[in-house]
Each structure stands twice: as structure tokens, then as C-alpha cells.
Amino acid sequence: MHKKYSKNAKQNILPGFNLSLGFTIFYLSLIVLIPLSAAFIKTTELSFNEFWAVVSAPRVVASYQLTFGASLIGALINAVFGLLTAWVLVRYKFPGKKIIDALVDLPFALPTAVAGIALTAVYAGNGWIGQWIEPLGIKIAFTPIGVIVALTFIGLPFVVRTVQPVLENLEAETEEAAASLGANRWQTFTKIIFPAIWPALLTGFALAFARAIGEYGSVIFIAGNVPFVSEITPLIIITKLEQYEYASATAVAVVMLVISFLLLFAINGLQWWVNRRASALS
């Protein structure tokens, strides 16, 4: 007596698959997918030439340059100092370490508007830090440098939190082996430690970069928002919205969305690769 079962009746006998997956897809569609598709559908109101005219207008292009340039510099600063921070937190003991470790996540937890006004207060010409730097001829608040400061702040935890666990899980033995073979500390770092952590570093960098591109709240207070100089792309979208130019606001939004999605896929691919590499190595 043979009973036939459909191939799709999966081996798993735990209940609730249809309910949980059904609800997941329903909720995902309702909250995320359908609303996001509205942006793409809205742009079809514009002809391609109109679309192109909007997204390649000089003021919009200047905002791309600022947004991507400042995000890139912010992410690079975070790559360097995030790596240092992760290293110090994992390897060294010093007073207040636990508090510092917890504070690294502050940019995740602090509302961006608060970060924005706080950074402005600190880095303005009469601020705690600004008053020391302005006499040197460097203006931070209300210039593109201010944008970089804000984007560095909001991207700060990413590199630290991606590199930290990898550093923690490095086996002391490999470093001891390197030392026993005659390598000095710097050689051990460049030849043993860095090759192990650079994929995580790259992931953290990409995450910080992606986060910075879309950032709005912390930037607008410190940026000064001067067209062609310190105006970021999300602000362009808001400005167009306030002038009821929905289609052109959406056109710029679509450009940003496409870039963000590409980054997301790249990051997911990167993380997949890192995980596979990690499991292959272990």
C-alpha cells in the first residue's frame, strides 16, 4: 500500500506555516511594498524627458554631489575611527570602558532631530568646540563640513558593531603562532588580523554610507541648507513637496530609492559572502 504525498507538503511538521507566512507577506505588502510602488507609479506621470529634466537639474545634481560626497567622507572617517574604537574596546582595559561601549550606540538611540540641534550647538561659531576651531579659519556649522560631521555621527556605530564581534572571535592562537614565527606586532596586524576583519570593515563602511545617504533630521539643522552649497537631496524632496510638486519630488525620490536598493543588495551580498567565508574558515 503506497500513499502519495505532494512534493510541497514539506517535511516540516511544525504548525502555523501558512498563517505566519501569510500574515508576513500581507503586512509587508500593506506597509512597505504597495506604498513603495506608489513612488514608482507616480513617476510614470512624467515623460522620460520631464523626468530627466527634474533629476538632472543643476541644483539637484549639486545636492547629489553633497549627499554622496559627504556620506562617503563620513563613512571613511567612521571606517578608520570605528576600527580603532572596536580594537580598543576588544583588546584593552581602561576605566569607563563599559560606559564607552554602551555609548557607541547613542546615534542609534538618539532621535536625529536632537542630534542635529546638539551638533549645531556644539560646532557653531560660538559653540563649545566651534569657538576654538573658527579662529583657525574653519567653519563647521552651516557649511558642507557640518554635513560631514552630522553624517559621521549617525554612521558611527556601524563599523564598530560589525568589526567588534569579528575581533572578539579571532583566535589568540593564530597571533601567537605568528609571533612564534618571528612576526612583529605590525606584521601580525597587517598579515594576520587585518585580512580576517576587512570584510566586516567593508560591510560596516557600506552600512554607514547607506545610512548617511538617506539621513535628514540630523543634517538639516547643521547644514545651513544653502542651495548648491549645503543642500542635501532629502531636503530637495521636502522642498518640492512643500511646493506641491509631487511628481518631481517623487522623481528625485525614485533616483534615491534605486541607489539605496542597489546598496542594500550589495550589502546583503557582502554579508552573505562574509558569513560563507566565516563558516568556510571555521
Binding site: M1, H2, K3, K4, Y5, A9, Q11, I13
Partner: peptide
């Protein structure tokens, strides 16, 4: 135990068919 379902064949507990019985 019923934790996996067979592609074909049957299982009887004390003569009674338990192949499609829930865990």
C-alpha cells in the same frame, strides 16, 4: 514519530494505519 512524513509507504500502530496521523 510523525516528525517527518514519508514520500510513500505506511506505518501501522497495533494494526491501525497511523501514516497520516498527527504527531
Amino acid at each position: 514519530a510523525g516528525l517527518e512524513t514519508p514520500d510513500s509507504g505506511s506505518i501501522h500502530f497495533h494494526g491501525a494505519d497511523a501514516t497520516v496521523q498527527k504527531v
